[in-house]
């Protein structure tokens, strides 16, 4: 399944404001692994989270076609 992914902050500078990736698995942890392989600079961050439909996603969560998926690098508001 191909999915479109939003990216913000430093993740946007690494992957672009959005990118498309071919999922090799169904889970959030699979996507994180694929993104890390595709964009090694993501792995150098303190952490990066995945949000699905505007909510922080758990590693075992399933990604479905049509979900809004985003890369969330360490936040720094305030």
């Amino acid at each position: 399944m191909k999915i479109n992914i939003l990216a913000f902050g430093i993740a946007r500078e690494i992957v672009g404001s959005s990118c498309t990736t071919e999922l090799t698995g169904l889970l959030v942890q699979d996507l994180k692994r694929d993104l890390g392989a595709q964009y090694p600079r993501l792995k150098q961050l303190s952490s990066f989270m995945i949000a699905v439909n505007g909510v922080y996603a758990q590693p075992e969560q399933v990604i479905n076609a049509g979900d809004e998926v985003a890369i969330i690098p360490p936040v720094s508001g305030g």
Binding site: F8, I10, P73, V75, S76
Partner: peptide, 27 residues
Amino acid sequence: IDTLKQTVPIWKKEVFEDGEVWVAAHP
């Protein structure tokens, strides 16, 4: 404010005279 800084997806980049850094991005 403490929780906002930990959970809310907002990011700031500090721009200095000789460079820039996304706050908290790297260890």
